[in-house]
Amino acid sequence: MSYPDYGPSYYGPPPQSHPQGTTILVLGILSLVVCTFIGPFAWSMGTRVLREIDASGYYYENRGMVQAGRICGIVSSVMLILTFGFLIFGFGIALLSGALSS
């Protein structure tokens, strides 16, 4: 038995989930907790997927997950840049103090 096709629903198309939403959230959380080097990947993937979601015009139920993963990636990337900045500054100070003491 088949049901008749009455056309589009009054409420619009059913909500969809972007296939990479969970991946971006997991990468963002892992970049904060385990490995900071994953942060830029979560940031770039999240930005790309948010552009895809906005361009599609459909409602994606996991947009919040993508945004959370992207924000975690941004925070992790900033922490990574600050860490490298402090390391370079520290090595520079150590080299200068070594050169000045001899």
Results as ranks from 00 to 15, higher is better:
Gly73Ser: 12
Ser2Glu: 07
Thr83Leu: 07
Leu80Ile: 00
Ser2Leu: 03
Ser102Gln: 10
Gly39Ser: 07
Thr36Ser: 04
Val49Pro: 03
Tyr58Gly: 11
Gly12Pro: 05
Tyr6Val: 03
Tyr6Arg: 08
Leu95Cys: 05
Ile93Arg: 10
Ser97Glu: 06
Pro13Phe: 05
Ser17Glu: 15
Phe86Arg: 13
Ser97Pro: 08
Pro13Trp: 04
Gly85His: 02
Ile24Thr: 00
Phe86Leu: 14
Ser56Trp: 08
Ile81Met: 01
Pro13Ser: 12
Ser102Met: 08
Tyr60Pro: 09
Ala55Thr: 11
Gly90Ser: 13
Leu95Tyr: 03
Ser17Trp: 01
Asn62Leu: 07
Leu30Asp: 01
Leu96Phe: 11
Glu52Gly: 11
Ala55Gly: 14
Ser31Val: 01
Leu82Gly: 09
Ser31Trp: 03
Pro14Lys: 09
Thr36Asn: 01
Gln67Ala: 11
Glu52Trp: 08
Met45Tyr: 07
Ser56Arg: 11
Gln67Val: 12
Gly12Leu: 03
Ala55Phe: 07
Phe84Asn: 10
Pro15Arg: 00
Gly98Met: 13
Arg51Asn: 15
Ser77Thr: 09
Ile74Gln: 15
Ile93His: 09
Ile88Cys: 14
Val34Met: 11
Trp43Thr: 12
Ser102Lys: 08
Pro14Ser: 13
Phe86Ile: 10
Gly92Thr: 07
Met65Ile: 00
Leu87Arg: 12
Pro8Ala: 05
Tyr60Leu: 10
Pro15Ser: 01
Ile53Asn: 10
Ile29Cys: 04
Gly28Trp: 02
Gly28Cys: 02
Trp43Asp: 05
Val75Gly: 09
Tyr11Lys: 13
Arg48Met: 12
Val33Thr: 09
Phe41Arg: 10
Gly64Phe: 03
Tyr60Ile: 09
Glu61Asn: 10
Phe86Asp: 15
Ala68Phe: 02
Tyr10Ser: 12
Ser9Val: 07
Ile74Glu: 13
Leu96Ile: 09
Arg51Ile: 07
Cys35Gln: 06
